[in-house]
Nucleic acid binder design. Sequence first.
DNA 1: CTCTAAAATGTATCCGGTTACATGCAAACT
DNA 2: AGTTTGCATGTAACCGGATACATTTTAGAG
Lengths: 352, 352
Amino acid sequence: MRQNAEKSGPKKPATMRDVARHAGVSVATVSRALDGSSLVTEETALVVRRAVAKLNFVPNISARTLKYGQSHAIGVIVPDLTNPFFSEFLREFEALASANGQVVLLANAEASVGGALTSVRQLLMRLVDGVVVLPSLDELEPYQLLTLRKVPTVAIDSRRTGPCFSDVSLMHEEGMRQAIGYLKDLGHRKIAFIGGSSGLMISKLRLDAFQASLKMHGITVRHEYVRYGNYRADGGDRELRNLMLLADRPTAVIGVNDLTALGALRAARTLNISVPNEISIVGFDGIELDDLVSPSLTTMSVSRKLIAQSCHGALEEMRVGRNGLGRQLYIPVELIVRQSTGRPLRKMTKSR
Amino acid sequence: MRQNAEKSGPKKPATMRDVARHAGVSVATVSRALDGSSLVTEETALVVRRAVAKLNFVPNISARTLKYGQSHAIGVIVPDLTNPFFSEFLREFEALASANGQVVLLANAEASVGGALTSVRQLLMRLVDGVVVLPSLDELEPYQLLTLRKVPTVAIDSRRTGPCFSDVSLMHEEGMRQAIGYLKDLGHRKIAFIGGSSGLMISKLRLDAFQASLKMHGITVRHEYVRYGNYRADGGDRELRNLMLLADRPTAVIGVNDLTALGALRAARTLNISVPNEISIVGFDGIELDDLVSPSLTTMSVSRKLIAQSCHGALEEMRVGRNGLGRQLYIPVELIVRQSTGRPLRKMTKSR
DNA sequence: CTCTAAAATGTATCCGGTTACATGCAAACT
DNA sequence: AGTTTGCATGTAACCGGATACATTTTAGAG
């Protein structure tokens, strides 16, 4: 009793029946005592709780999941954890989930072949209560599988809703209008855009918003000012260099996300092109890094916390009231002006 | 048959028995057919696979977990996802896990009271195959619980091993020796250190290494040159300002991690203190950002991939061969010299 | 054509927590 | 005393996949 409360090695975790035996009651009583809620003598409950403590009993969630068909786990499909936008989102979302007694199952979408589909299948096997799809996938199959199973799903920027499928979209159009209006007011007319890989939804949405906003402000859209990066800094770096090779250089450039813009910023620095005098740079996301670089990055910021809350809320709503259709939510975008933008230098340029 | 292969809404996912019925065989046959391995006619297997496809059957992992007591899930306890060091690690680790058919269960350690303990309990309930503890927790209780359950665990920089408990440590001492040797060669004698919150293991280890290395190089340790931040940029920013208030300023400062150093870099920029002329700054981690700022950050870099591989390897080793003791692994640290370090300005200073 | 061995398939049970239903037992009322 | 009410507890079945063991089918040998 002194040195080894349990005999030898507790290889197998204690089960409820072990607790029941130890407490001299039945499993049902143990279960009820642990629920706290129901009808068990305080006395009995105490005995049970003591047995639980002594045996270090931890309930086996699989058994519960098996019975109820839900695991209190939420799958999150992330394209690239390295992107601060996603990791910042994940932190917020995880906090919400764990406050709700749910755990987060991480699934990567970058795995080679059929990555997303495999991830989705993994999540389905584990009977997740819901799924968050962070990049909007272009493939439809993973979505269909989720819908078929009626697993509450929320996607970011998919601009699509359906049964058990909600969407949380950023107001790109609004943000882009602000940003371009701001640049125009500063005197910019030659504004370029560095997107992500051309196919992806998010890049397309932001590019569309970019072009629409230019038109709205009466600025001509020039195809040579539209480039495609990769959502990472090196893509932004590369494409800014390409833009600088043009005879008629843009005076401002907008990145599809902050990493792209930060890459562009670095390229400008390396090329000894002054920011914002020779070129203004604007990002999109509002990651914490923006304020760590010099000049700090002007960006269209969107609250990660709000996105996370919206996603979690939408999932819960679909989960509890299994009433078919999902929701379409919009998240505001706010232009944050920092040091990477300013008036363009008035120097001789071909008037086009 | 045309418009609705399954009648009405497939509320409940198809089970193996559904597949068996549909294929006109028994559950055992279905199970074997899906294993592929065993003794089933190719013909039968085909019928089964067709039924699986038609019913969109996905096995229920909980049932398997219940039977075997292992879930093919690995818990990762992270202190702050926002720190690129952790998110970069997580990306690498997730890739390894998913290549091994495991999923990653995210657990945060920042949750208010008893955060880590609650997280650990959650993971135990889910019968994780292993746990990675990223920050070395100072509390012992969570560890004890894991050890009691014989869940393979690997911690970073805990410098402690035991039954079912491995450690992966960075070679701080080695890195610090390199860094300080390098700074000394440049002519620095007044070197400061900005740690994290004073109590935490990782800060303590690096501070100890810092002080030991200074001594080794015959440089006196000055207590006013040791400050405590918070592992984030704002802490580094704040503490660099404090250091600059000293009458006898240091000429170089080493951050406990890169975020701290980047914060210090920003503070120097804001204060119009030239880096590296007036102050050299060195970080620790080697995050991708280091190259995005200007001047780019000199740092003691450690391969996230190698850490992830070591962690995963150690877990697997403990899992398959349940042979008691864990391992102690060391990860090399490499000094990467960039623009934030250089010779100190030779100007009049109080000779102390 | 029969018998036997091997191959293919079926049946039933286990894993552990929950809960409908059954049982027990005491106080309260007729 | 007998009976009802109601609370406390026990018993057993269920969830779904795996598998030891039982049973059937098939093939090959005599």
